[in-house]
Nucleic acid binder design. Structure first.
Length: 946
RNA sequence: GCCCGGGUGGCGGAACUGGCAGACGCGCAGGACUCAAAAUCCUGUGAUCGCAAGGUCGUGUGGGUUCAAUUCCCACCCCGGGCACCA
């Protein structure tokens, strides 16, 4: 038998698989269709990243396994080649994106071949192929026809480096997701998709999806549904009123002022009445100029200006309240105005404190949480005695906010009750809770404590910081010093004691509760006082004539990009029609979709494809491109010159895969019906709210257009983890990107595949270090050797059946690392015990998804089969054979393992106990001791308590 | 600040509904083979005390529940990811 030459063998099978069409299911007539989708990559032309390979391998193992389960697995591949990412690369290397795309495509596809995935190459597609983007544009026209695409002037995110607008989803912490530049705000007219129309459905459907939980949570948060009320606050001496959205209408009586976003339209309407207009104007200007970054740099420091001369009326208590302008209120959310309830809202509270606005408490916590009382704030030391250990613990509360023991000290027990300390004491069982003050305020408190010692507490001791020892001794001279001073601790000791759990508990409850924003009982709220806040919400809404309202955080999808490398938006604007108010949509005169038979609107090859930076695409200076005729009147018209967001390309690619060469239709409905929704979709968690939300949205629109029957495209979605390199994220800037090619050359694709999967659980990601790769190489070499040797055993072992079970279950749950470990254990067993014929067949099948090349080589060349192993049936295991006949009974004494004996699996409890108590070692250890209890856990252990 | 993950030997990681912590692999040490090295094979490998039998400690920290806690409860600390003034 020849030595295993991985390089040759892998190339041989990759070629053969293509010839034999092993991975090409019959798309039109599948028996058991199984769509195994993987997020397609953006080709960066530097080549395939080992991180891509990690993800692809994980998906492929699953696909290969499903194929061996008798499914017609469809595992397509393509390139998400349009977009800023690819365009920027082209700019960097100075090649035209169209040329660069060809280069990247070749390179990527070669690499994707080399990793040994079972891709259906016949159906490959590229988003920059006119045959593809023809349909991307067609989708745009469908959106338009359904009223889901519209133009709007809005403050949008502008990336100064990429010179284009960005969707909200593409801005991370005020910076461009791609290049990291600080995003600016620009007022531009742009195309949007009305994704908000589907907010509720996008949210509701999440429940029925079998998706990674973290992705579901991220989507829920992104959609951000909240239930509240719309309330109107009349402006004094005018017919105008300010409408606000609030989730807490129950706090209306505590609304002591209002805030409008600086962009709020009402400000201009009130201009005449505002006495300090200059200041107001200045504030508006300055907040307009502020970039996101500046806002973040300011932190949460509130700024604002009062609209002097105007007042609003609180509809609940008819109180006149001031109106402010502040940028902590966002124009894009709710109505762009709020009612401020500083007593019950953290942000309002901050603002009110800074600008000295009145604060009125309207919600009292039911459980006795602390009240905020600004005026009474100082440091406190609490001394607590643990009732069990008698240990004295202490805590220095400095600058706390919670509270009342200070200044006036504790006047009565009611104070304690009010702040909830008693509940805490009772709850925790710390009965002897004592409080004393810090050194600064000691005299004050000393008296208070002495006086109150027979009430809810009494002081037993005072701890002082060591450095003040002398001073404090002096100060205490007059008091009952000896009785109270129990010890001295250093500052460090005091600080370490702060960490004590009991204190932290109190700390949480008393000090950190800044301003109370939870539910409770209403106070200072007229006839609603005393009512439960939940109930009061709708009662008060009704009382002031407000209406219930559901608000979403989700905003419409900004689809235009002022770049070159994307599908031109297939719209035409006719000025003449606009003047006559003609057009396809009433709200948008002059606009027409390009006719279907004129699609695609081809992206012209222009020399200067550089972004312009004027809020216009490079296409805006290509006359040949934008000059066209109006589909409405036939006159001169101008094409839209923006291109669409890359995420539109990837929002429907999975549909096109099934019929990529269809020239007549976007896809074949019959085929779609057979294959979708997809059984499995695997991809990166970084797309949790971008791609994965858009793709669902487009599917829903297709559903409503009657194009598809499903309204969710993927039954299962699993996010893979992130592959990092020696503890750090792989990135070009760090220069630690690992190229799989060299590893494939040095070892083999099989070795690299298995190594990547063995690193860590697939959904967790892993740390790529060269260190462990030898282990996998050895494993595969030993496997090869095993098949070289003659089997001398005939009977299939239970170990084999156990391994089949383990590997099967692990692949299904994507726990590839433990599946591989099970294969290793089995190999160890075979090397020791020999391998039976059935095991020889089974083992190589178990290996096939992980190391497809070697498995095929063994299957065909060594075992002499004519057809591919990858179309063989997955081995079955026999539950009966897995059952053990005996088990190791562990004998514990007081929870510690003292002995173990091998006993039959069906041993009775009594018999087991007898065995345990009869054990020599146990007898010796138990000698003379009285048995208190014997616990028997079937098939596990016996614990003898003495 | 909020929401998700996570914290286990020298390292990557394993441990089902609480039941022998450290599977599997890497690394390391010792041995075999070899003139030698590599490769391969065998043995050992959490810490600590002990000549040994064996004992003690040990899953981020501090508490708790339990016959028994990596696993459950409370609080805290740290790391990774996401969101971030969303009323």
């Amino acid at each position: 038998m020849p030595k295993y030459d991985s390089q040759k063998v892998e190339k041989k099978w990759q070629k053969k698989w293509l010839e034999e069409k092993v991975y090409e299911p019959d798309l039109k007539n599948p028996k058991k269709p199984f769509y195994n989708l993987m997020m397609f990559p953006y080709p960066s032309a530097e080549g395939l990243h080992v991180g891509n390979m990690y993800a692809f391998t994980g998906s492929d193992i699953y696909g290969r396994y499903q194929r061996m389960r008798g499914n017609d697995v469809f595992e397509p591949i393509g390139l998400d080649g349009f977009g800023i990412h690819s365009e920027n690369y082209a700019l960097k290397v100075g090649t035209h994106p169209m040329e660069q795309a060809k280069v990247s495509e070749k390179r990527f596809y070669e690499q994707l071949q080399a990793i040994g995935n079972g891709f259906a190459w016949d159906e490959h597609l590229e988003t920059y192929d006119p045959e593809y983007y023809k349909w991307t544009q067609w989708i745009f026209t469908q959106m338009w026809k359904r009223g889901l695409a519209y133009r709007k002037k809005q403050r949008v995110n502008w990336c100064p480096k990429d010179k284009t607008v960005l969707a909200d989803e593409q801005v991370e912490g005020g910076k461009c997701e791609r290049c990291g530049s600080v995003v600016e705000k620009r007022e531009l007219e742009q195309w949007f998709f009305r994704i908000t129309a589907y907010a509720e459905k996008l949210l509701q459907n999440i429940e029925k999806l079998d998706w990674s939980e973290k992705v579901k949570i991220a989507q829920r948060n992104w959609i951000g549904r909240s239930e509240g009320a719309l309330l109107k606050f009349p402006v004094m001496g005018s017919k105008l009123s300010i409408e606000v959205f609030t989730t807490r209408p129950d706090t209306l009586f505590g609304a002591t002022y209002m805030v409008l976003a600086p962009e709020h339209a009402l400000v201009l309407e009130l201009k005449e009445k505002i006495s300090n207009w200059k200041d107001v104007e200045k504030y508006i200007e300055s907040s307009k100029k502020k970039t996101e970054d500046e806002r973040i740099a300011e932190g949460k420091e509130k700024t604002g200006v009062e609209l002097k001369g105007v007042k609003a009326i609180n509809p609940a208590n008819k109180e006149e309240i001031p109106i402010w302008l502040a940028d902590y209120v966002l124009s894009g959310y709710g109505t762009g105005a709020i009612m401020a309830v500083p007593a019950q809202d953290e942000r309002d509270s901050e603002f009110a404190k800074k600008f000295k606005l009145p604060i009125r408490t309207v919600i009292e916590p039911i459980t006795g949480e602390p009240r905020t009382d600004e005026s009474e704030r100082a440091g406190i030391v609490a001394i607590v005695e643990d009732p069990k250990t008698g240990k004295i613990l202490s805590l220095d509360w400095r600058d706390g906010g919670g509270v009342l023991f200070v200044g006036g000290g504790i006047e009565s027990g009611e104070d304690l009750i009010r702040c909830g300390v008693r509940e805490i004491i009772e709850e925790t069982g710390y009965k002897n809770l004592k409080f004393i003050s810090s050194t600064e305020t000691i005299h004050h408190h000393f008296h208070a404590f002495s006086k109150n010692k027979n009430r809810y507490m009494h002081a037993i001791g005072l701890y002082f910081q060591l450095e003040n020892e002398e001073r404090e001794k002096e100060r205490l001279e007059d008091h009952e010093k000896d009785k109270f001073i129990v010890g001295w601790i250093t500052k460090d000791e005091a600080e370490s004691k702060v960490k004590d759990a009991m204190h932290q508990y109190i700390f949480q409850k008393l000090i950190r509760g800044k301003c109370y924003s939870g539910p409770g009982l209403l106070a200072n709220s007229g006839k609603f006082s005393g009512m439960d806040s939940e109930k009061a919400k709708w009662e008060i809404t009704k009382f002031v004539g407000g209406e219930k309202k559901i608000q979403y955080r989700l905003r419409d999808w900004l689809i235009s990009r002022q770049r070159y490398w994307g599908p031109p938006i297939p719209m035409v604007y006719c000025e003449a029609c606009a003047k006559e108010n003609k057009g396809e949509q009433k709200e948008m005169p002059g606009w027409f979709a390009v006719l279907e038979n004129e699609l695609p609107v081809e992206l012209p090859k222009v020399k200067d494809f550089r972004p312009q930076g004027k809020g216009e695409s490079p296409l805006a200076s290509v006359k040949d491109f934008y000059e066209t005729t109006c589909p409405g009147c036939g006159g001169k018209a101008r094409r839209e010159t923006d291109v669409s967001d890359t995420f539109l390309d990837s929002a429907w690619y999975y549909l096109r895969y099934l019929d990529p060469k269809n020239e007549k239709e976007v896809f074949d409905k019959k085929i779609i019906k057979k294959w979708l929704p997809a059984e499995m979709y695997i991809g990166g968690a970084e797309h949790a709210v971008l791609h994965l939300l858009y793709v669902r949205f487009i599917a829903m629109v297709f559903h409503d257009l009657g194009l598809v029957e499903f309204d969710e495209p993927f039954k299962r979605f699993r996010a893979h983890g992130l592959l990092i390199k020696e503890g750090a994220k792989m990135s070009k800037s760090k220069g630690n990107v690992v190229n799989p090619d060299e590893y494939i050359k040095k070892f083999s694709a099989d070795v690299l595949r298995m190594y990547l999967m063995f690193l860590a659980p697939f959904d967790q990601g892993g740390d790529f270090r060269d260190a462990g790769i030898l282990g996998i190489e050895r494993f595969l070499n030993r496997t090869w050797k095993l098949y070289e040797s003659e089997g001398k055993k005939n009977k299939t072992s239970p170990a084999f059946h156990r391994a089949v079970k383990k590997v099967t279950e692990d692949i299904e749950s994507l726990h590839y690392n433990t599946a591989i470990s099970a294969l290793m254990i089995l190999l160890n067993e075979f090397e020791k015990e020999g391998i039976a014929p059935e095991e020889k067949v089974g083992f190589v099948k178990l290996l096939a998804p992980f190391a497809p090349h070697m498995a095929e080589e063994i299957w065909r060349e060594v075992l002499g089969h004519k057809t591919s192993i990858h179309k063989e049936m997955w081995p079955e295991y026999d539950e009966k054979l897995i059952k053990e006949e005996s088990f190791t009974l562990v004998i514990q004494i007081n929870g510690k393992v003292r002995a173990s004996v091998e006993v039959p699996i069906d041993i009775s409890e009594n018999r087991a106990k007898e065995t345990a108590l009869g054990n020599e070692r146990v007898c010796a250890l138990l000698d003379g001791k009285e048995l208190k209890k014997v616990i028997y856990v079937p098939k596990k252990l016996i614990n003898i308590v003495v």
